[in-house]
Simulated scan of single mutants.
Amino acid sequence: MAGLEPLIGEPLALDLVNTRPVGADLLETPERLAEWLRLEADRLPEPPPDHLTGADLAAVHAVRDHTAAALDALLHGRRPPAAALRGLAEAQSAAPAIRRLDWNGDAVTETVARLGDPGARLAAHLADAAATLLTDPAIDRLRRCGAEDCVMLFLPAHPRRQWCSPERCGNRVRVARYYQRHKATD
């Protein structure tokens, strides 16, 4: 992705919400969505569709918006908007999940598969990731980046973590502090 690179490595739903930093949309086109999906491919239950459409992009944007609204409410100690929770449920139901049974030679196994077109299955999987995050007890640790001009969200593994990324915002804040200290002594 040209310019600003997406941050990945948080829960998938947070990675999705974090594709909208201040003043940018890293999923602005179907092609950019395809690039992001390639970065997240190991966390998707099936390969991303070969060809993404504007409708697929709109479905992913809707899941991102609903997830962001629910997370913002939780960050502020409020109940997530009913419309956001309903929107995530609608994305999930647009590609219903079924349990497929199979025999592996020793035992019955199951796999969960989604029905529907590839874009609806993708949006449903992202909505599932949002549901998993929103119901995880760790959601109480959710934080917004401590850098003044950053809106990224993260779940800190360490309670002292302040920034979405030590390489991005953490380094930028430390350099700015250093500059201010040395500017004051000059």
Rank of each mutant, 00 (worst) to 15 (best):
A41Q: 13
P6H: 06
R79I: 12
R168F: 04
L142A: 01
V173S: 03
L101R: 13
R161M: 04
P80E: 09
V17S: 05
L33W: 02
L142W: 00
G3H: 10
R38I: 08
G87N: 15
A84R: 05
E167Y: 08
H66K: 07
L122Y: 03
K183L: 12
L75Q: 10
S165T: 08
A2K: 14
P21G: 13
E35K: 09
P45F: 08
P21D: 12
V108G: 06
D56C: 14
L33A: 08
R32M: 12
V173I: 15
A70F: 02
A130S: 13
G23Y: 05
R161E: 01
P96R: 10
L133G: 00
A62N: 07
L75C: 11
R64A: 03
P48G: 12
F154V: 04
A13C: 06
R32I: 07
S165G: 12
R79W: 06
T29I: 12
H66W: 01
T109M: 09
G105K: 11
A130C: 09
L126K: 07
D136M: 02
H51C: 08
D72Y: 04
V60H: 03
R99D: 11
V60I: 08
L88E: 02
L133A: 03
L75G: 13
R99W: 11
P81G: 15
A68Y: 03
A24H: 11
T132K: 05
L115F: 11
W163C: 00
A34Y: 02
T132V: 14
E148T: 10
A59F: 05
L133W: 01
P156G: 10
A127D: 02
A176V: 08
L16F: 01
D65M: 11
D149K: 09
P45L: 11
D186M: 09
V22I: 14
Y178M: 13
V151I: 15
W103F: 14
D25K: 12
P47Y: 11
G87D: 13
V17C: 08
T67F: 03
P11W: 00
Q162T: 11
R121N: 04
G77L: 13
L4S: 10
A147K: 04
G3F: 06
M152I: 03
A24Y: 04
V60W: 01
R43K: 12
L134T: 04
A107S: 13
R100F: 04
Q92M: 13
E110C: 10
T67D: 03
R99A: 15
P49F: 11
L26W: 06
R78A: 14
A41F: 02
A68S: 15
R100M: 14
R64D: 00
A59D: 09
H125G: 05
L12M: 06
A113F: 03
R181S: 10
L126T: 07
C164H: 01
A89Y: 06
P81V: 15
R143Y: 00
A34D: 06
G54N: 14
R64W: 01
A94D: 11
R143N: 01
A129L: 01
P166G: 10
L74M: 14
R43L: 09
A184G: 05
L115E: 14
L12D: 00
H61D: 12
M1W: 02
P96Q: 10
Q162M: 09
H51W: 07
D106R: 10
L4V: 11
L122W: 02
A95E: 03
A157K: 15
D15F: 03
V63R: 01
P166L: 14
D42G: 07
G54A: 13
T19M: 08
A13P: 01
A97V: 12
L142H: 01
